[in-house]
Amino acid sequence: MKPEEYSRRQQQVGRWAINIVSYRLGDRYYCTVDNVEPGARIARGEGATREEAERSAIEKATARLAKTRVVS
């Protein structure tokens, strides 16, 4: 099987920029979110639709990003 309907975009969550990558593999959609700087994957989502996969990943990413302290 091949990944199809590949999509990549950038979005802001609070003060942090994230990359959102999603694509379809078979009958499921997959999404990964990384922090643009430095580029580490911080969440993953899966669903029957792109919206569902992205929503799941972005929710997890948002919760994790909220814990990031800025100390100075």
Binding site: W16, E37, P38, A40, I42, A61, L65, S72
Partner: peptide, 24 residues
Amino acid sequence: VRSPQEFTGEILAPPGLPETCQRG
């Protein structure tokens, strides 16, 4: 080779990842 914000000590870990150090 970390991000500029880690280098300056503004953050202690990449955004969204657990802090693993005491000082920035």
